[in-house]
Design a protein around this nucleic acid. Sequence first.
DNA 1: TAAACTGATGATAATGATTATAAAGTAATA
DNA 2: TATTACTTTATAATCATTATCATCAGTTTA
Lengths: 147, 147
Amino acid sequence: MSEHKLNDSLDTLKKSGVRITPQRHAILEYLISTESHPTADDIYKALESNFPNMSVATVYNNLRVFRNAGLIKELNYGDASSRFDFVTHDHYHIICEKCGTIVDFHYPGLEEVEHLATHVTGFEVGSHRLEVYGTCPACIDNAAKVN
Amino acid sequence: MSEHKLNDSLDTLKKSGVRITPQRHAILEYLISTESHPTADDIYKALESNFPNMSVATVYNNLRVFRNAGLIKELNYGDASSRFDFVTHDHYHIICEKCGTIVDFHYPGLEEVEHLATHVTGFEVGSHRLEVYGTCPACIDNAAKVN
DNA sequence: TAAACTGATGATAATGATTATAAAGTAATA
DNA sequence: TATTACTTTATAATCATTATCATCAGTTTA
Ligand SMILES: [Mn+2]
Ligand SMILES: [Mn+2]
Ligand SMILES: [Zn+2]
Ligand SMILES: [Zn+2]
């Protein structure tokens, strides 16, 4: 796990006057170490053995603190819980509609889309969101086995 | 308003054995006539003068019926209510972060992104979602007036 | 036509993720 | 040490959506 990312994040927080508590340290560490885009409850469950008294509200509160500090992104999918992603380089997500797995992938320029949208709608464009949906290799295999 | 779209939709429903009730007729008609991507509650409020006894559950139930029949799409934004869009041609959305307005816009091929995602991740790709975020002309004007 | 059946509606309760509240704890500061 | 500000925890509240179920309205059958 990247000790470097953790220390950078802790520095960022300290600089903006946020105290580093054991809970915050653990939540950040967990977010940096995982590739799984966990929900607040996933994080809560992952840490409850180390923090038996931690409240789920603490997880939510601190995820908001981290989001406001720009350290993590919140991914919303409407029907289910938000999922959280530690911010490193820009990337997009591909999501399995069977099992919910979210996998990173990289794609270069979609600035063109932003330009066109500006031009056609008169909006001042700030960002965009792109997701690809499908079936992950594991779920494809499972479907094959059943038949 | 497109009488044509309404009749097509009613036919589609009838063919799949769904009864056309006055409530369903009104909800569909409203969705076809508006450009506003309304929430379930927006629809409920818009129709309550004509249907004083209608339940909000009926709106939700019928939106699900229409979605399953492929007549409408549900747009999720996590923090707020789902919004609904009558399906015509494919299009993307640009969303004002100030006031929540959703405006359609068209953009040609993003099949390339789907292909790349397939190649890189091994997923079987089915669809994608693209949204652009920014500030709408009305909100830009308002901000200018204040200063 | 009357009875039976099927699916739709409407009132209300339940669910579940997230947020708000308030008391108690902890660290920083004077 | 006393004060202050911030944080955690437990719990209650919120709010969109769904579930339940009695009632209703067409349609089919006898
Ligand atoms: Mn990611
Ligand atoms: Mn639209
Ligand atoms: Zn899968
Ligand atoms: Zn706006």
